[in-house]
């Protein structure tokens, strides 16, 4: 643990990332306390108010108000809940699915490997957007469905990376040596192989947390995302695109929040990657 702390302190970028992330997570958790207004409360007479420092701005809406007079700051704060939830849960779903299937595929080989890889092929060859539309058409949009769509369709890249890593690690000297010494395969997997395949998985996962947050926005752009009853950055961005000139703040602030979060996740992820990979730690 001490070592972890030491390493964390050494990377200034990672510290910055962790700090931003902490703020985001805190604001997500404490949204009802921190947010000055109800994010859904509309007041059409106060619509499209610019941020407080602009002409016609009002202290009531620090970051301005949207097309229905809802408070942009409050919505941005609440929005972090949706974005973080979508990113993290979807990655957990797809990551676990992918790692398990990839390992099974690589170790079992044969028919099971072939089957899993064919399913992966079908999944990859099938346009994601179509699946999203179909799910929305059948069961409706909404937070849970967005998470499920992203989570379930995302496993393939994990499975493929894990599979190819395992295949190349399997033959390496230290694994061979461990096997020769009579390690059981489960032990082998956890002691020798998993640590070695986790590096690319973590790189992929950090990237995916971020990209799922962006994907949520894109789905909303196509009208397939989270429902308006839940304020999300995706909805704010998608709504804001019609107001790029008349109300730039509607999209800029959730956009900034999204970027900062993505940036910080990536900084932390990079550090994590270097921490997990001992070879890198010693050379940098």
């Amino acid at each position: 643990m001490g070592e972890l702390w030491h390493s964390l302190r050494r990377g200034k970028a990672a510290c910055l990332g962790a700090a931003i992330l902490l703020v985001m997570v805190l604001s997500a958790v404490l949204a009802p306390v921190v947010a000055p207004h109800d994010p859904l409360q509309a007041e059409i007479t106060k619509r499209l108010r610019p941020p407080v420092w602009r002409e016609k701005g009002a202290a009531e809406n620090l970051l301005g108000s949207d097309q229905l007079g809802r408070d942009v700051l409050s919505r941005t704060i609440y929005g972090s809940r949706v974005s973080l939830m979508v990113g993290i849960i979807a990655v957990l779903i797809s990551g676990i699915l992918g790692v398990v299937l990839g390992m099974v595929s690589a170790f079992q080989g044969g028919r099971l490997d072939a089957l899993i890889m064919r399913i992966a092929d079908v999944q990859l060859a099938f346009p994601f957007i179509l699946l999203a539309i179909a799910v929305v058409a059948v069961v409706g949009g909404g937070l849970l469905n967005v998470i499920l769509i992203l989570g379930v369709t995302g496993w393939v890249s994990y499975a493929r990376v894990v599979r190819s890593q395992v295949l190349s690690v399997k033959e390496k000297e230290y694994v061979e040596a461990a096997r020769a010494l009579g390690s059981r395969s489960l032990v082998l997997i956890f002691r020798q192989i998993l640590p070695n395949v986790m590096t690319p998985v973590i790189v992929l996962a950090t990237f995916n947390v971020a990209s799922y947050m962006v994907a949520e926005a894109s789905l909303t752009f196509l009208g397939l995302g989270v429902q308006p009853a839940i304020p999300s950055w995706g909805i704010m961005l998608a709504d804001g695109r019609e107001y790029m000139r008349a109300g730039w703040w509607m999209a800029v602030f959730p956009g900034l929040a999204l970027m900062l979060t993505v940036l910080s996740i990536n900084l932390v992820g990079d550090w994590l990657r270097e921490y997990l990979d001992p070879r890198l730690r010693h050379t940098e």
């Binding site: 990209s211 947050m213 926005a217 894109s218 961005l237 998608a238 695109r241 956009g255 993505v262 990536n266």
Partner: peptide
């Protein structure tokens, strides 16, 4: 790297 991350964090429609 920062540019790359920003590239990832901006939805393509934006």
């Amino acid at each position: 790297r920062v540019l790359a991350i920003l590239g990832q964090s901006m939805p393509s429609f934006w």
